[in-house]
Design a protein around this nucleic acid. Sequence first.
DNA 1: TTTAAATAGGATAAATTTGTCCGAAATAAA
DNA 2: TTTATTTCGGACAAATTTATCCTATTTAAA
Lengths: 144, 144
Amino acid sequence: MFSKACEYGIRASIFIAKNSYDGKRVSPKKISEEINSPQAFTAKILQVLVKHDIIKSVKGAYGGFEIDKKHIATIKLSQIVEAIDGDNIYKSCGLGLKKCNDKHPCPVHDKFISIREGLKTMLENTNLEELALDIKTGVSFLKT
Amino acid sequence: MFSKACEYGIRASIFIAKNSYDGKRVSPKKISEEINSPQAFTAKILQVLVKHDIIKSVKGAYGGFEIDKKHIATIKLSQIVEAIDGDNIYKSCGLGLKKCNDKHPCPVHDKFISIREGLKTMLENTNLEELALDIKTGVSFLKT
DNA sequence: TTTAAATAGGATAAATTTGTCCGAAATAAA
DNA sequence: TTTATTTCGGACAAATTTATCCTATTTAAA
């Protein structure tokens, strides 16, 4: 469904959000430990999220990654997915046709539209706040 | 969503089904031309489909790939996807956790279940017959 | 039985994704 | 201002996926 990079990016974002509620910045080392991901690779993905203004980085001593508290509830999963994987998952044809639309549909065009709309709607209606909160209360987990 | 191999596999299966209704066997060359896919790679995927008894191959002169007419309506997309990509798309965690279940869920566990159930149901309820028919009547297409 | 035609399958290569390493640049605190 | 700490960014490496090529094997027809 998503690339590894995107999975790590979502998990990292949730972890950063949770810590930002506690006023704590976190390092790639800490993040990768807590979400169980390769550190250097995760650091690369964090750079992408910074470039897309989804998370904030602070260099130097006592630096790290954070998200403005006010911002957390406004960040949707769709933004993270699009920043890392692009919008292919919504837009590209389920059977890989370069051009697939209502006028020139692949054999599963209609059937896929509803699936993808469902996914899109879900990602657009899920924000980091609720996900971070579930981590905080121990309802859900970021690693096995 | 699916791998390239799986996209080619589905498109190839539909094309073979359509031709089998006309009593015609088709070669990897013809298939790859008609679904616009790399020939040798497509041939490899056909071998996988043969191994899984989804399509039939006939060697030698006047050979090629076909599907028993009686069989076409019973082949579901889910069988093709599982043969090529496995059942990860249904079963594996949306955020990549090795172990993700109701007792130990990832943050998007519940939200993903409905999406994936929808996909699974769709794949399990779509058979090659209806897809091949749409190609035959020019309602849908296998290449751009 | 011979031959031509077709799939099967192994070896290999290219492209993409995933992952690592290390020095440069920035920054807060001493 | 200096120093320690931290992210940034480029180069590189490994793994996986995608793709190609060539020979062996099979098989139906002549």
